[in-house]
Design a protein around this nucleic acid. Structure first.
Lengths: 193, 193
DNA sequence: CACTTTACATTGCGATCGTATTGCCAAGGG
DNA sequence: CCCTTGGCAATACGATCGCAATGTAAAGTG
């Protein structure tokens, strides 16, 4: 066997370059040559690790989803259910440059996947898992008269919408967090002192 | 003066073709030639009415925003504030093919405008106007202990998020409407009988 | 009836795209 | 030691892109 290289590492190197470009100019107009240049390699190498552009895109999406999942699970300071939910949702919002970049990619993929439903299955699973988790937390600690499932769906939609508006600079980060907190106050009954 | 043609009409013809294409394959990869072919005209004519591609894009966005605004204002059966707000927000959700298409275009523009802030000003104004209206309604009729501004921002984000998830087929229409109604129930105090 | 101005249509240019092809180089296995 | 094979580089190809340049027909204006 010839030279041994870490396949995963190379692909992640390229995917990171892809994400940097996507954040700067939009996912759709990222080209193989641009990725190669950004990563400081030749276009031939990009082709070697991704036989097609779609393959590269799919890999990058999977990478982003994995990272989001990791960060969400690293979140582990279980105080109150409300704080737990808040911490998790704050991980989704684009409040720093890294998550801003990731949100860009996810958004671009959403717009892309609305037309090619087969690509979107991974996205759907992630959201569904989060929704059931949220519903569970709400069922335990939400105020009376609140449907946990609807409230969970609403919370997820709220965070998605806030992220969308943050990306397009319609809100400041403080406003977005405030809106999220207002919603949490609405949903959770005061902690039993 | 030479042949008189309705400039607005021509531009709307082209913008409609643009929107059809954008809904089918994504806004980013719509080209001048495609628009021309879809509209059944020559590429030269497209260039005649839009000197640049960005100009065409901007016009199409403005058209979509105007239509949403019109439809929202045509909404005029002022019963309760809650019903008023609900009617308006339902106009934003992609619940039929027309609004599905419009939401696609708006979404694509959002992803596009996150990188070119100058384009996004129109979007921002529309959202801001809606937010102040919602805040006004909420100030009058919301339950106690609710900050009207945060609640309005949250409602708008909720609807945006629901629309996003509807477009990517993560929710059914009924679920989205139910989530919206749950949120409205949370915000509005019971009508004074 | 000249003349200007608008409304298109046609064509071409340079750039960039995704991808296929080809070839070289180095590292093991027989 | 050769020779296969993976890792990469270079290049070429056909398509498509935005846009500019140019040409033509027709409708008013003087």
């Amino acid at each position: 066997m010839p030279r041994k290289v870490d396949h995963r590492e190379r692909r992640e190197l390229l995917a990171n370059a892809l994400m940097r470009l996507a954040a700067a100019q939009g996912l759709e107009k990222v080209s193989l040559r641009q990725v190669a240049a950004e990563a400081g390699v030749s276009t031939g190498m990009v082709q070697h690790y991704f036989r097609t552009k779609d393959e590269m895109m799919t890999f990058a999406l999977g990478m982003v989803m994995d990272r989001i999942r990791e960060r969400s699970q690293a979140e582990a300071a279980p105080t109150t259910p409300r704080e737990l939910v808040r911490g998790l949702l704050l991980q989704v919002l684009p409040l720093d440059e890294t998550r801003r970049l990731e949100n860009h990619v996810v958004l671009a993929f959403l717009a892309y996947a609305a037309l090619r439903p087969s690509i979107a299955s991974g996205l759907r699973e992630g959201a569904a898992g989060m929704r059931t988790f949220l519903a569970g937390q709400l069922r335990a600690a939400a105020a009376d008269g609140i449907d946990p499932d609807h409230a969970a769906a609403g919370l997820l939609a709220l965070v998605d919408g806030l992220g969308l508006q943050l990306l397009s600079h319609q809100y400041t980060e403080a406003e977005a967090v405030a809106a999220l907190d207002a919603q949490l106050t609405l949903l959770f009954r005061p902690a039993a002192t």
